[in-house]
Simulated assay, not measured.
Amino acid sequence: MIDLIEGLGVAGDAHAGVTVKHRSRVAKNPSTPNLRQVHLIHRELFDLVALAGYRVAPGQLGENITTAGLDLLGLPVGTRLRIGPVVLTVTGLRNPCEQINRFQPGLLKQVLRRTETGEVERLAGVMSIVSRGGAVRAGDPIAVERPPEPWFPLTPV
């Protein structure tokens, strides 16, 4: 179980707060709103990187919540995810960094790669803010509420 605090993030997490907590972002502007309070990764990513020989388990890439059967990367900005009493609002894509290679050398190229047309593809999950807090437990169903159209694709936050 994890406790999510409205407007802050995961209780006790280093990235919880109203403003950015990631070192590089704090260095640029410490008063920037924290759009990265909760990190979600789709379970299917672990299967994908396993095809390239990497073993990754839930929680090892810094995510707070692991989903299954949900196209996280295809959600539009502003999608609300209801998990039990909790409401998360999706803000954008996680932009993975070199630290992933410290976990397993070469893994960054598996989660941050280029398509055949040369576009950057970010596969390391999505970021969200806590719009309504509460406790989330393993196995809680996730209800997806897309925002009104027009929908905007996720970009790195």
Rank of each mutant, 00 (worst) to 15 (best):
Glu44Leu: 08
Gly84Pro: 04
Lys109Gln: 02
Pro148Lys: 09
Leu35Val: 10
Leu35Phe: 15
Asp13Phe: 05
Leu154Gln: 06
Gly84Thr: 01
Gly125Lys: 13
Val49Ile: 03
Val56Thr: 01
Leu4Gln: 00
Glu98Gln: 14
Pro148Ile: 08
Pro148Asn: 12
Ala57Asp: 05
Arg25Phe: 14
Leu8His: 03
Ala57Ile: 04
Asp140Cys: 03
Val120Ile: 06
Val157Asp: 02
Pro58Glu: 11
Val111Arg: 04
Gly133Ser: 00
Gly12Ala: 02
Ser31Lys: 15
Val20Phe: 01
Thr66Asp: 06
Leu112Phe: 15
Thr32Tyr: 12
Arg146Ser: 02
Leu73Tyr: 01
Ile2Pro: 06
Glu63Tyr: 15
Gly69Phe: 07
Val136Ala: 06
Leu93Lys: 03
Arg122Leu: 07
Val136Leu: 02
His22Met: 04
Arg94Tyr: 09
Leu108Cys: 00
Gly118Cys: 10
Leu93Gln: 03
Leu107Ile: 09
Ala135Glu: 12
Pro105Asn: 15
Asp13Ser: 10
Gly12Ile: 12
Leu81His: 01
Gly106Tyr: 14
Pro141Val: 14
Val87Glu: 13
Arg25Val: 07
Gly17Ala: 06
Ala143Val: 07
Thr155Ala: 07
Gly118Trp: 13
Asp71Leu: 06
His39Lys: 05
Ile100Arg: 12
Ile5Thr: 11
Val144Leu: 13
Asp3Gly: 08
Gly125Ala: 12
Gly125Asp: 02
Ala57His: 12
Thr117Ser: 06
Val18Gly: 00
Pro30Trp: 02
Glu44Gln: 02
Gly7Met: 10
Phe152Gln: 14
Asp71Ser: 09
Val157Met: 08
Pro96Ile: 03
Leu70Ser: 03
Asp13Trp: 10
Arg137Thr: 13
Met1Ser: 10
Val26Cys: 04
Thr91His: 09
Glu116Phe: 05
His22Val: 04
Leu48Ala: 13
Leu4Ala: 05
Phe152Lys: 14
Ile100Gly: 00
Glu116His: 02
Tyr54Ala: 04
Thr91Tyr: 05
Trp151Ile: 00
Thr115Val: 01
Pro105Ser: 15
Thr32Glu: 14
Ile2Lys: 04
Leu73Cys: 03
Asn95Glu: 15
Asp13Thr: 07
